[in-house]
């Protein structure tokens, strides 16, 4: 294992952080970790080697729930760690979650004998999965893209952004957090490439014999719930369903021909700006 000598000098700082983190565990239950009180000194273990060490530890201990690609797992409820993290907004926040766990969830703390250095390496690895959106340079103009979104491209008929728009497609208010510009462009050129099960369509006839069709909001072993084009919610018991058809394609048209390359770039630029403002 290689350590940089310059890491020794802030040793005291790390000790201070440790004290704060340990101090937190003595708060009454009901308190969440209180990392924001800790001074965010940044991660001192963030070299390429640290990231690799963190990756190795992640694959061994974390991937069972979060997946080898760290993209999470709906079944275990483990979140995707490659986009914006919902529970932590700083390195110390990530550190605290790994060290302390998240109460009331399957996210248990790492064993107490795991060193803080290893936890910081994990933090470095998790950070390496993301990038700073401000560092991305895009050809398109976001402002023009925003006008296209509500105008010529008519996206807001189906998609909501910040509470405005339709219900016939995913809410895009935060789409920039977890999608790369490449993902966004691909989704517009070939919407069928990746359609989340929530947006599959189902056509089903219930016991009344009436065929209803809509987006598959939720389906389980015995029941099915859909939203039709008028935003009506319907629920079926599968034993009552007379026939059932499922379409795993998107209802969104390809924009490959209806928009110019420049317009697509503008839309991508706009969509990429859609993210929640960072919490203080």
């Amino acid at each position: 294992m290689i350590f940089n000598l310059n890491r020794l000098s802030p040793k005291l700082l790390r000790v201070a952080l440790l004290v704060i983190v340990l101090g937190i565990s003595s708060y009454p239950s009901g308190w969440l970790f209180n990392s924001a009180q800790a001074e965010d000194a940044g991660n001192l273990y963030n070299t390429a080697v640290d990231i690799r060490m963190g990756n190795r530890y992640f694959e061994r201990q974390c991937s069972r729930c979060h997946g080898f690609d760290a993209k999470g797992n709906d079944e275990t409820g483990a979140p995707d760690l490659t986009g914006r993290l919902r529970r932590a907004s700083s390195d110390t926040g990530i550190f605290s979650i790994i060290r302390e766990g998240v109460p009331g969830t399957a996210m248990i703390p790492v064993a107490t004998d795991v060193t803080n250095a290893t936890v910081w390496q994990l933090v470095a690895y998790i950070n390496s999965l993301r990038y700073d959106p401000a560092s991305v340079e895009l050809a398109g103009d976001a402002k023009t893209g925003g006008k296209l979104f509500a105008g010529k491209a008519d996206c807001s008929v189906c998609h909501m952004v910040d509470g405005q728009g339709g219900r016939l497609g995913p809410d895009l208010s935060r789409i920039g957090e977890n999608k790369t510009p490449e993902d966004l462009l691909l989704a517009m050129l070939d919407p069928d490439e990746e359609v989340a099960p929530r947006w599959w369509r189902v056509r089903a006839a219930g016991a009344d014999g009436v065929i209803r069709e809509g987006f598959r909001m939720n389906e389980d072993s015995f029941s099915l719930r859909i939203m039709d084009i008028d935003s009506n919610l319907w629920s079926f018991q599968k034993r009552d369903i007379l026939n059932y058809e499922r379409f795993e394609k998107s209802t969104m048209p390809s924009y490959a021909k209806s928009l110019s390359d420049g317009e697509l770039d503008d839309l991508v630029a706009y969509l990429f700006t859609l993210r929640r403002e960072v919490l203080p």
Partner: peptide, 26 residues
């Protein structure tokens, strides 16, 4: 495309008749 893929429900009486069978929209 959306309009064609979603069965247009005849409003009113039919909805009322069916609501006993399937959870209605609110």
């Amino acid at each position: 495309q959306l309009a064609s893929l979603c069965m247009v429900l005849s409003a009113g009486a039919a909805e009322e008749q069916l609501s006993a069978v399937i959870t209605p929209a609110f």
